[in-house]
Design a protein around this nucleic acid. Structure first.
Lengths: 337, 337
DNA sequence: ACCTCCTTGGAGAGCGCTCTCCAAAGAGTC
DNA sequence: GACTCTTTGGAGAGCGCTCTCCAAGGAGGT
């Protein structure tokens, strides 16, 4: 094995030109005489030459890859069960492939793996980082910033930081949910929030509460969930015990909404006739749920693609200042509310 | 910008030793006097030195990354909607992280992107490839093999090839499903197969039919689906029209099973009392489905991890012959059958 | 005390590529 | 026809690292 493969040198020798000329033909830098180009291309064809990536990036200081860092709290690879990360990946890949950039997937869920990520970027193994982090306390943004690594976040950082990010107006999303529930005439509504150490969870809840309060509902019972169907199930159970008369529920993501619907149905309650349920995200489970979920749409793929775009752009022009792009949520009305 | 960062040379100068010595300390090759080691480590600390990845891999001819190639037929990033790929990713990442190897995610769904994958590997951008391919006609395995790229497949290749792979005994899975349906006393069973250009689909169906035939049911009506909930929905609809008396259904994955259950319920049929439904995979939707699906478990994460393990092993010993690891499916009984 | 063997540090040759200089040659200009 | 200006190919210096060789010094044997 030890594939050595033909080098620039080999091609140059066969074509009877210098290394520099071959390099120019390969990279399309500067003018090269068309005849010579032809000769060189033949030589390349003949040898089956492919430029060596390591050698190239040693001098260009570019790798053509970026790190896609997923910093879940949970035990590592469980995160992929959540459709959210699949959607992020899809959006990122979708954009990057148009630019010939490749994503390296990294999980950052422990001190150790976080250090690995920083190390990886400092080594120049990737040109920049896309950081999908939920928890407000995540330390990676500042560490990457300190290491001078071009970084773009999905979701604003826990503390103000001169870093680019894309985000959703989660509060507006919460308001949308509240408006729908009130529009349906619900009078006793509860909420199942996401983990409260996640900014998005806080924001969704804040927006929801605000809108309710503004309309004469100063108090909304809230149970904290964990963004999983099981946690939504449990939360709905508690809500039902404490407030049996509930007729409207806002769950901070679709998975939890699904869990809530299940409990409701198990208790012989009809959705949406007896209890209306609004989810959040508009991911696959929202459609699969019976009844299909009315939900607040988060355009995850588009946001992820934008995140990738912002990074690639800042890679091309490193002097650029950080930007932020905030997306607007949208209410998708289906059957559950 | 243009972070230059300290080099080996810098560290060597500060520590008052040669480059070679610093390299030895960093890589732990050969003995180095403990005192000297201490000095060198201090210098490293002081300068914040990190080895340059490109330079290193230029000489070692190793990158510490592998390509995780997902070759769906569908329009690219849609694949991530299918929980299957999320599970594969989880399994791969889970194993690789223990070995300090990083996966680069690539989609191969067009001629162009397939060529990109080959190019990427030939450039030495990654040390090997993990290829998750469903379609039997996929050309990548042979192209990668021809290029001398260490490769491991998820699912056996369409044509016999000297390449390592992991796979499931899909036929045994089909038999398991048939056995369950017959055990429940079903007399009129139908099947919703996966796309028939996918080997796994063929095998699941073959196993299922065989087991049915062996038990006195020579004919099983089959409708081909596309592994999506919508296609399962459509397929069940047709099955119901053509065979209204059906009392058992085998769907070749959980997504389609879910679609089938929905149709059944819409038609006022009870699952499993009127019609028993068996799915395949045991992915998240199987649990989320109402009723929860009885299904044939494919240990995707474990298989993906094994695939990664086989690749890493063959990277360490390139002279090794190809291996194959076949996993056994398992029936998971829930409520739908 | 001499010789051999083992340990350990340094020198330096690349790995394959890009890119800055230079030089040569051709095209204009007056 | 002598001059400058532009175009285009070649030479060669690195990019930062690993690793083979070599030499120096100390330990052990006789």
């Amino acid at each position: 094995m030890t594939k050595v493969g033909p080098t620039l040198e080999d091609v140059a020798r066969i074509a009877g030109v210098s290394r520099a000329t071959v390099s120019r033909v390969v990279n399309g830098t500067r003018n090269v005489d068309p005849n010579l180009q032809e000769t060189v291309r033949n030589a390349i064809e003949q040898t089956g030459y492919t430029p060596n990536h390591a050698a190239r990036s040693l001098v260009t200081r570019r790798t053509g890859t970026v790190a896609l860092v997923i910093s879940g709290a949970g035990g590592g690879s469980d995160v992929f069960v959540d459709p959210f990360f699949g959607r992020v990946t899809a959006g990122v890949v979708d954009f990057l492939r148009t630019r010939g950039v490749h994503p390296v997937l990294m999980l950052a869920d422990t001190d150790r793996t976080r250090a690995d990520v920083v190390e990886f970027l400092r080594q120049g193994s990737a040109d920049g980082a896309l950081l999908v982090t939920t928890h407000a306390a995540e330390s990676l943004p500042e560490r990457l910033l300190a290491a001078g690594v071009p970084t773009v976040l999905y979701a604003r950082p826990g503390r103000p930081l001169p870093v680019s990010y894309v985000d959703l107006d989660h509060q507006a999303g919460g308001r949308l949910a509240a408006a729908r529930l009130m529009e349906l005439g619900c009078t006793t509504v509860g909420a199942i929030s996401g983990p409260l150490d996640v900014l998005a969870s806080q924001d969704r809840l804040t927006g929801f509460r605000e809108a309710m309060a503004r309309n004469g509902f100063p108090y909304v019972p809230v149970v904290e969930g964990g963004f999983t169907a099981a946690s939504g199930h449990a939360a709905m159970g508690r809500l039902l015990v404490e407030h049996p008369e509930v007729d409207g529920v806002f769950a901070a993501n679709d998975l939890m909404a699904q869990g809530a619907v299940d409990v409701l149905l198990e208790h012989g309650l009809r959705v949406p006739q007896d209890v209306a349920v609004v989810g959040f995200d508009d991911s696959a489970p929202a459609l699969a749920c019976r009844p299909p979920l009315t939900t607040v749409r988060q355009p995850v793929e588009a946001m992820a693609a934008k995140m990738a775009e912002v990074l690639v752009t800042s890679l091309e022009d490193p002097e650029q200042r950080p930007t932020s792009v905030i997306f607007e949520p949208e209410l998708v009305i289906r059957a559950s509310a």
